[in-house]
Design a protein around this nucleic acid. Structure first.
Lengths: 210, 210, 210, 210
DNA sequence: TATGAATGAGCCTTCATTCAT
DNA sequence: CATGAATGAAGGCTCATTCAT
């Protein structure tokens, strides 16, 4: 949920100060790559397509990124940086009731899936790839841990405040929620509203309606 | 009238493989493709690799499958046919208590993930691809409906027998379970045991331990 | 205009008498090849297509013909054998007036082009190929000589009978006619009627309408 | 995140050819293709051969031409552009006597056949192909119309100047001449001198030697 | 005889990458 | 900085041919 390894500036040592223009161009390219990845998947991801979408020559692309691999790394950096999945003021604020924070989290998630569905396509693509690439998996694992930390905290405080009376271990429930969300983004690809019911079902369970 | 250039084949003897029956060879190829897909993903899936793994010439592969597309379709057929994910005698039998059936389902699932982890890699690969390919998505949707039907039935009978006293709509809970499993196979790729806790957490919720 | 080299029976020495069935099958195949050639040209001529059109397995085709080359040779034999371009009773008969014989020749030609247009496609194909293959060219040259002989004879007798009063050397006029016909079959491919006017123009010239 | 398989290019230095301008290189390639087509025919026309003859890598060829089709189109353009078959100052000039213009046309034709025999091979190849490809046929038809226009004009002015006293319709005679030339280039492939006699025979007829 | 299975050679094309400008 | 040109490696696919049955 937060930026992983910070290899940002170290990666491409520049003699002169990295002109702002250059940095902008780089991120433009990454966004183009990101969108292309969402559309075509890794299978079908072509340097030339990316370059074209970024409005530059494909050689220029190689000027900014050492190779396809480097560009993909940058995409990962980009998405991880941006990975505020389910984040929202309400969800983050510790002043709000845990129950509300969680439901805000779910709502933010659904909203995000509605607004930027490509993100979840890219995420699925990346998750799949992570199955074969341990370094990538490590990144996701690290993120998951943060996510789990957030959820656990909400759950624990919810239990303390007696909002969550269901029977569960906060950590385990957090794991369950994360994976469920992960699965929902796949199952409900294209119809985000479908996510709502299962998500709120879990909320019900947490509340422990007996 | 003498043909100048030497086209075609003028090769010397050869060692042919034991010559299986056509159908056998076909499924052998599909299995090889399946395994290759698990290893390399769609990106990286090469007809030649598949052929080599199947122990045949790549032209022979084209003899059996019109093209890559056709072979991929065959993989899908193969996996769907085999898609008894989480199936087990105990889970299927209606004589067994619903709670047991569900836990047997979970156990079978975990076992399967332990025994044939590639299956879940392929499934992830296919699910991701389904995001871009409606026909493939349709197949998965169809399968999901079956799966959901099974789970709903178990849940309903569990409610009737008062084994599941939790507050939930059977259908919604079924959806939640399916997506959670889907997410778990990704999150827990490589460490199937990790699936157990979240899965049984859900069981607890269903039982409604109040 | 007549069969060239007679290598027919010598080509494929059979222990047993060449069962009639076998010979029939061979010519069936040749006809299938002939039609396929007309449709697809040498570029695009595929053994499998031929076999399919002949209603046999492509391996069977190889049983009857040593290879593509041999089959093409057979096509040539077939077309040359059949090469009665412009033949007709009237044209052949020496009892008929030379002028009539020639016009009958032209008419027969046009009729043939109308009835069996594929023949001329194949001929064009073969003629083009002959440009690169001396042996094939030799066959056509030999045929041309016969054709020229026929025309020359008609022209000479026409001159003797004072039907052709134009100024011309019979041989040269014969050459002119042959090439013109050759060109017309290409120029007028698909619209044989277009041949008539130029052809009869020549007739007019021969008659020497002064 | 490390790419496993080694795709793409990781080659060592290279010796690049003198780097011509894009347009030059293109036409160089077309000429190479043209010559290859003359030698091998459409059957036997290979992108690699063309590239080799042009002295470039076959990928470079694809850099200039989208595909085989595109290259063939370019060949057609090239030959059509160059298609001044039988053109010569004398034949074109309207100051010259029509009879001379026509004979100059014939001479130029023969000369061209002597000097660039490949052209006629390519033409034959193209004409044959045109039998199956309407778009190509349209191109030739268009060209034929121009050619016919030229001949008709010469014939008409020859009749007006009383140089051509033979009995003929200019248009029809033009058609006859075109097809005859077409046929002669095939019949006389390799021995252009053979064209002379038939051609001049026609001239004689046009003059109307009665 | 006839044919299904198998194969090697080769074809067209694509792609990431690099070099020279 | 940027780009057009060029390239090697490889990929999917086709085809004539052959072997075993």
């Amino acid at each position: 949920m937060v930026r992983p390894r910070q290899k940002g500036n170290t990666r491409k040592p520049l003699k002169r100060s990295p002109s702002l223009k250059s940095a902008e161009r780089r991120s433009e390219i990454v966004r183009a790559a990101y969108r292309t990845l969402a559309e075509k998947g890794f299978e079908g991801l072509r340097m030339r397509d990316i370059a074209q979408r970024a409005g530059i020559d494909h050689s220029t692309l190689h000027y900014y990124f050492a190779g396809k691999e480097a560009l993909i790394d940058a995409i990962v950096d980009y998405i991880v940086l941006d990975l505020a999945v389910g984040r929202s003021p309400a969800a983050e604020s510790e002043d709000v009731s845990p129950r509300l924070r969680l439901s805000a989290h779910f709502d933010a998630l659904i909203k995000q899936l509605q607004e930027t569905p490509e993100m979840f396509v890219v995420l699925a693509e990346l998750n799949t790839r992570a199955m074969r690439e341990p370094p990538l998996r490590a990144i996701f694992n690290k993120n998951d841990r943060k996510w789990k930390g957030f959820l656990t905290e909400v759950l624990v405080s919810g239990m303390q405040k007696n909002e969550f009376k269901g029977t569960f271990l906060p950590e385990v429930a957090a794991e369950a929620i994360i994976s469920m969300i992960r699965g929902l983004t796949i199952t409900c690809a294209g119809r985000p509203e479908l996510m709502r019911r299962p998500l709120y079902q879990v909320l019900t369970w947490l509340e422990g309606t007996s």
